[in-house]
Amino acid sequence: MTCLCFLCVSRDYDELSSIMAVCIAVIAKENYPLYIRSVPTQNELKFHYTVHTSLDVVEEKISSVGKALADQRELYLGLLYPTEDYKVYGYVTNSKVKFVIVVDSSNTSLRDNEIRSMFRKLHNSFTDVMCNPFYIPGDPIQSKAFDSMVSAMMVQAC
């Protein structure tokens, strides 16, 4: 056990300060999941529910008509809502695809620019998936490259 934990920490040596997600989801514009990965030791259904609930908040944030706020034009939506144990962050692409990142609340070294950077990586990889001619838009994402990128951002089970 101790041996495994050691591997977990030293693997991302240059990213020791990064946030690790407990759940990452990609939701199609029609609001069904294209990709959802959560830390295997947790109750997955709970995460699915959390992601599902967050979509309402996303809709609210992006459909505010008449608001002249500058940040309304941003793709990054920031903290959607905190729950007791988790913080949920959102991001919407211009193609109306939503990314949701769920982070453990106890992760105290939360930095906004780190979350933004995670979303950027997600967005870049998702764009690559869209440009894979063998990928049919709307299908679940099944890409090794995408999987690796997400793995690097997830809490590793020790």
Binding site: N132, P133, F134, S143, A145
Partner: peptide, 10 residues
């Protein structure tokens, strides 16, 4: 081959 990932059946 930028962005291309070959599926298993090819």
């Amino acid at each position: 081959v930028d962005f291309v990932e070959l599926p298993d059946n090819h």
